[in-house]
């Protein structure tokens, strides 16, 4: 078989999820994640990430469209498709009254592992998660970081070729997060395809070979982080004011020749500019802005965070000052 004939690890074809009452959580998304890729699915809460993950892990049925795991249809051959997947949910989904060993044995056996193979995989999963020394005590006595590691180990115990992680670092300290990243990178080097959902831009930029930005049930763009940053992340200026910007001043700001787009509310504003240095000078010269008092004016480092602001009109994490307004229409 040639490399070209290898089906994608995950393929979503025109996937739609509509709930009773007409709410469309996912609006016809299509994408392919190739074998061995480390792929990031980025989006704020409510973007449709978890609904998409539920459909591609077989937890919920799409209203229309299709999911294929390594070429196997989740709709027509769900058990075979599921056997190729490992899933790490955001919540600690295991049994706290049991030991790590018992949890891993239980979840491994659900995938048909038995006898020596099961024991070997349990040992390996414990090693990966560095839980070997505490493997026999009840999980309820574990620290938050240990539980997080066990949560990942449970998803790995059956040696899946495709691993899906739904926001696995929520509430994890820097040290444990780094350890988890290293584990995932090692697995990925061994050929495991990783689909990683997060709203932490830094880790997506560090880990993922490709990312898709999702918002309001749609995939807006999918590419390498570098390409996205080149395309959307450059020329973003952050303006912090002492007092909220009056409406009239905001309108004048949006009309500046050097400003292509405007996002924000109250005291914090983001400008999209082709020539950021010129935009900074124009902003400082604007009477309404001077009256509001400028606390800070920064040309943002181009990264996924600035990409996200540009393509969705809002930031990934909840802003400090109310809901942000969408970017103003670009001035040509």
């Amino acid at each position: 078989m040639t490399a070209a004939a290898t089906p994608p690890a995950i393929a979503l074809e025109a996937l739609v999820k509509e709930y009773p009452g007409g709410t469309r959580a996912v609006r016809e998304i299509s994408m392919e994640i190739l074998e061995g890729e480390f792929f990031g699915l980025l989006g704020p809460n409510g973007a449709g990430k978890t609904t998409s993950i539920h459909m591609l892990t077989g937890l919920s049925e799409p209203t229309s469209g299709e999911v294929r795991i390594q070429g196997v249809s989740m709709a027509s051959r769900p058990l075979e498709a599921k056997s190729r997947l490992g899933f790490v949910p955001q919540e600690f989904a295991f049994y706290p009254s049991l030991s790590a060993l018992d949890n891993l044995r239980f979840f491994g056996s659900l995938y048909g592992l038995r006898g020596e193979r099961l024991e070997r995989r349990v040992r390996e999963a414990l090693e990966i998660s560095a839980l070997g020394r505490r493997s026999r005590g009840p999980v309820s006595t574990f620290s938050n970081g240990m539980m997080r590691r066990l949560n990942v180990a449970v998803g790995l115990v059956h040696e899946p070729r495709v691993l899906i992680l739904d926001e696995p670092t929520v509430g994890v300290d820097a040290q444990n997060r780094r350890a988890l990243h290293e584990t995932l990178e090692r697995l990925n080097r061994q050929g495991v395809t990783v689909l990683y959902t997060t709203h932490q831009m830094e880790e997506a930029q560090r880990l993922c070979r490709r990312v898709a930005i999702m918002d309001r049930g749609r995939i807006l763009h999918a590419d390498t982080p570098e390409a996205l940053v080149r395309r959307f992340g450059e020329g973003l200026v952050r303006v912090e004011l002492k007092s909220p910007l009056p409406t009239e001043a905001r309108e004048r700001l949006a009309r500046l020749d050097s400003v292509q787009g405007l996002d924000g509310s109250g005291r914090i504003w983001h400008l999209k500019a082709r020539e950021p240095e010129r935009a900074v000078q124009d902003v400082l010269a604007l009477a309404g802005v001077r009256e509001a008092g400028v606390l800070g004016l920064n040309i943002l480092e181009p990264n996924l965070e600035s990409v996200f602001i540009h393509v969705t009109g809002r930031r990934l994490r909840d802003p400090g000052e109310g809901a942000p307004a969408p970017l103003a229409e670009e001035n040509g």
Binding site: L59, P78, L79, S83, P89, E91, F107, L110, G112
Partner: peptide
């Protein structure tokens, strides 16, 4: 509530 059902249902079982 704890999500273990959801996790189990991602395994190959009905």
């Amino acid at each position: 509530q704890e999500g273990t059902f959801r996790r189990i249902l991602t395994a190959p079982m009905t």
